[in-house]
Design a protein around this nucleic acid. Structure first.
Lengths: 165, 165
DNA sequence: GGCAGGTCGCTAGGCCGGCTAAGCACTTGG
DNA sequence: CCAAGTGCTTAGCCGGCCTAGCGACCTGCC
């Protein structure tokens, strides 16, 4: 209904062809989401793995980075799936050689999960470059710009979360 | 590895407590994604519907807004699922009273999909407020800010899409 | 010390939503 | 006017989630 005024607010940027409006920013945000979703799908199919399995591996890799042990229960909580589904998920990842199960040193019921060295390297390779590119873009922002971007995204998060009227 | 310098670049904002860095912006982007994902899950469960069905309805509603007829084939293409799955999806949505099938006026093979008035209203109600809130945030940006935000998001999209080295 | 109740992970079985293959109804080009 | 193409559907399969329920183990109370 308001598409006719989309480009109407260049009043103080004059007719700078680079001038953008808030609506452009909104569209860019939508496009980013699409790009990210596509990236996830690509990664998933490249590694022959579903989204949940991906997230599980990333979670465990990150936990290992800070020397934190991960149990199936932790994983289930993080992923928001049942413990039964988690068992099957871990089975899959063990079968595909990405993960190993080990007994918990002090609790006989518990299991400690660890990624195999190969997988650790694969994850690094798969996400390392992308993460570096994103970081490079982020670092280009000066404090002024970072504040604007951060504030915009925080407000958008709020707009999206705000279920109460 | 670089967490120790996260807040180190406030050099020209001085010690303004509001000053942010690119890394903050990156984190805000990640948080936005989480918020959006959560919103989708909430909506889905509120409407007792899966993600694909949601997207299908939104697609059809938007198409109707611009008086464009939607066939199952169009839907399949948009959603990236097979025509068989689309048939079943349409069956579901017709059964739940969200959608109706009608014969195409000139092509006897084709089907035209339309949402029921109730659904149209429901969708409006469900997404209307959120969309308005997002639009309100977007409109607060002046051209300068919008340019910064848009450029950041475009570069991030690129960073994420860039699969070729 | 030993048992009652809680916790952890597993197995079994069901459902949902995707897929491919194949078929039917209709359109269209030679 | 029929052969090939197109749109949608049906049939049957599979992956990944779920709940229910089990055995092994831990722990707090007597």
């Amino acid at each position: 209904m308001e598409s006719s005024e989309v480009r109407a607010s260049g009043y103080w940027y004059g007719d700078d062809p680079e001038a953008r409006t808030g609506v452009d920013a909104l569209n860019a945000l939508r496009r980013y989401r699409v790009a990210e979703t596509a990236m996830r799908r690509r990664t998933r199919s490249a590694l022959r793995m579903n989204e949940t399995d991906m997230m599980a591996l990333r979670f465990i890799v990150n936990a290992e980075r800070e020397a934190r042990a991960v149990s199936p229960k932790d994983l289930a909580g993080y992923l928001g799936i049942s413990s039964a589904s988690t068992t099957v998920l871990v089975d899959r990842l063990v079968a595909s050689g990405h993960l190993s199960r080990a007994k918990h040193p002090s609790d006989g019921r518990a299991v400690v999960l660890a990624v195999t060295p190969t997988t650790h390297a694969d994850m690094q390779e798969t996400f390392g470059d992308m993460h570096r590119r994103m970081m490079a873009v982020a670092r280009q922002l000066d404090a002024h710009e970072a504040t604007i971007v951060t504030s915009f995204l925080e407000q958008m998060s709020h707009a999206v979360s705000h279920e109460e009227k």
